[in-house]
Each structure stands twice: as C-alpha cells, then as structure tokens.
C-alpha cells in the first residue's frame, strides 16, 4: 500500500466514524425525541438554576508550565528524526543531542528557579 493510499484509508476511517455516530444518533432518534420542559436545559449546577454564562476570562494557574511546555514541544520535532538515525551515527549523535538537551534543560532550570514550575 502506498503512503497516499494509507492516508486515504485513514481519511475514510474518519468519515466512517462520523457516519457510525450519525447512525447511532438516528437509532436513538427512533426511540423518541427529548421533550422540551422548562429548566431542563440549564447546565448542571447541583440543583441551583444558575443563569449567568460562565464564558469569562478564566484564570489558568498553570501558565508558567504552559510557557515552558511550548518550548519543549518544539524540541520534540528534532528528537524523532534524531532517534531514527541514532544507532547509525553513534557517539556523535549522543553528544549532539546531549548538548541540545542540556541547553533545553538550562531553560527548565531557569524557569524552575524563577518559580514557573508551580501553581501561580
């Protein structure tokens, strides 16, 4: 199977999954529809009818981690091709990546020392 056929197959599976879910919805529809009743459509609030929207500026306390994560995520782009040829290249590859990771680790240590790695 050529790689293009493989991608086509994956796309087909995606579409097939959507179709499967739609048919489940259709099946459920044959059992009956949801009845509209007052108060039923209020989002879950433990018995209270809260009416205000919650789409507000949300304070995520992990933003320090998130900033460092962006950098680490980037670094993974280099790790995979490196890993594939690692054995072939040998010690040079180890040293190379060692230096690269050491640089990154410095960043981690800096963030750590400044308090990025905690709940803000």
């Amino acid at each position: 199977m050529s790689s293009l056929q493989q991608y086509g197959l994956l796309l087909g599976i995606t579409i097939g999954t959507v179709g499967f879910v739609l048919s489940l919805f259709a099946l459920a529809r044959t059992f009956g529809k949801a009845r509209r009743e007052p108060g039923k459509d209020v989002p879950a609030t433990a018995g209270q009818l809260s009416r205000d929207p919650v789409w507000v500026r949300y304070h995520a306390r992990y933003y320090g981690y998130a900033l460092l994560f962006l950098a680490f995520d980037m670094e993974m782009a280099f790790m995979y091709p490196w890993a594939v040829v690692y054995k072939q290249v040998g010690l040079v590859a180890l040293l190379d990546m060692g230096v690269f990771l050491a640089i990154l680790f410095l960043g981690l240590l800096y963030g750590w020392s400044q308090g990025a790695l905690r709940r803000q």
Binding site: T45, A46, G47, Q48, S50, D52, V54, V56, R57, Y58, H59, A60, R61
Partner: peptide, 28 residues
C-alpha cells in the same frame, strides 16, 4: 480575571446533601 459564582449543592456528589456552598471561583 473575571470571577464566577458556582453553586456546589444542595445536591452535589462530593458534599453532604442539603448543604449549599456557593464558591466564587477565580479559575479553579
């Protein structure tokens, strides 16, 4: 940030029933 009032109770799985706790949440 914007703070929201979220009710926990009177029927909340992790608290005694009939206890109404309204928390003002800043993020979580």
């Amino acid at each position: 940030m914007d703070w929201i009032d979220v009710p926990f109770g009177p029927f909340f799985p992790g608290l005694p029933s009939a206890l109404l706790l309204i928390l003002t949440l800043d993020g979580d």
